[in-house]
Nucleic acid binder design. Structure first.
Length: 308
DNA sequence: TAGGGACCTGCC
DNA sequence: GCAGGTCCCT
């Protein structure tokens, strides 16, 4: 089916949303043409000057839900500004950046298992390699689209297959984690965490092998829709130490500091903590590699005469 | 509890 | 050397 979604300026920036690392199964197959999957749904989205032309196997309500289009973005932004005027420039910089609501927690969990000690350039292809084990859900322009496989299917992928696909040590760890999830009840168990309070869901996730506090918060935020979750990765850590914890700049993220950052965000923003986090995360990620503030890590600043 | 090191692979 | 961490060890 096809439908048109008309958008106000700044209401939704699809490119930012699907390429900033909340989801990993979207790609731009031609300029302004995006192909993406969410659970058993697929979307072919043409970005136009005043909205989106969508072709999909699910109705527009599903698209709106995925991109959170029924929440008032302006209202949320106003609330964040009110709680923290210092975030104003970050909010202004990324109009249309929205927190998404992916529907398949298996997909989110497995994709994020690819992210530790890794970078986006490699994470995307790895996520797609896992997706290739899933069942076909449609075909667009000759391309077969597949949903993400069930957790049991991921658990049964032989290590050598993923090794051959360049997964490195994750070739063993990802199926292992998947097996632990399957033991607990698989998709049903993961989905049931949505009904639990954030703290409880967090504890359940962090108990999984390969899932530390950062992944637990990513899964809680994106897959379980726990908007109090604040994933403290290297990007948010840099932003948070710059703005709120100057005494920790350059220090390592310990467990207690991790908790302190999240608690501060939750105290300031309540259930909007995860949304506020997103602006800072995205800004820092985009500026990664550049001369970020008065850092001590500038490449060209290094006085190093050893040619080799 | 904080600090240090290893970990697959690919790109700077 | 280092990347959207995690685990294991002092």
């Amino acid at each position: 089916m096809t439908y048109t979604i008309s958008l106000e300026p700044g209401e939704l920036d699809l490119r930012q949303c699907v390429s900033c690392g909340q989801v990993f199964l979207w790609r731009e197959t031609a300029p302004y043409l995006w192909l993406g999957v969410d659970g058993e749904a697929w979307f072919r989205v043409q970005v136009t000057p005043d909205g989106l032309n969508v072709e999909s196997n699910v109705p527009s309500e599903r698209f709106r839900r995925l991109f959170n289009l029924d929440v008032d973005q302006a209202e949320q932004e106003a609330a964040i500004r009110a709680a923290a005027p210092e975030l104003e420039p970050y909010i202004a910089r990324f109009p249309g950046l929205r927190l998404m609501r992916p529907s398949c927690p298996v997909e989110t969990l497995c994709c994020f298992l690819c992210t530790p000690n890794n970078h986006l350039r490699r994470i995307m292809p790895m996520a797609r390699a896992l997706q290739a084990y899933g069942d076909p859900i449609g075909e667009v322009e000759g391309v077969v689209l597949r949903r993400f496989p069930e957790i049991e299917a991921v658990a049964s992928i032989p290590e050598h297959e993923l090794r051959a696909k360049g997964f490195g040590y994750r070739a063993r760890s990802i199926p292992l984690t998947a097996a632990r999830v399957a033991e607990r009840g698989g998709r049903q168990w993961l989905t049931s965490l949505r009904a639990k309070p954030y703290a409880e869901a967090f504890e359940a996730l962090i108990a999984l092998p390969g899932v530390g506090p950062k992944l637990a918060d990513c899964i809680a935020l994106f897959a379980l829709h726990k908007t109090e979750a604040v994933p403290v990765d290297t990007h948010l850590w840099q932003a948070a130490t710059r703005l709120y914890f100057p005494e920790w700049r350059g220090a390592a993220i310990t467990e207690s500091r991790y908790r302190a950052v999240g608690d501060l965000f939750r105290a300031k923003f309540g259930p909007l903590a995860g949304i506020a986090h997103h602006y800072l995360f995205y800004d820092n990620m985009r500026n990664a590699g550049r001369s970020q503030t008065s850092g001590t890590m500038g490449r060209k600043e290094r006085i190093d005469s050893s040619g080799s």
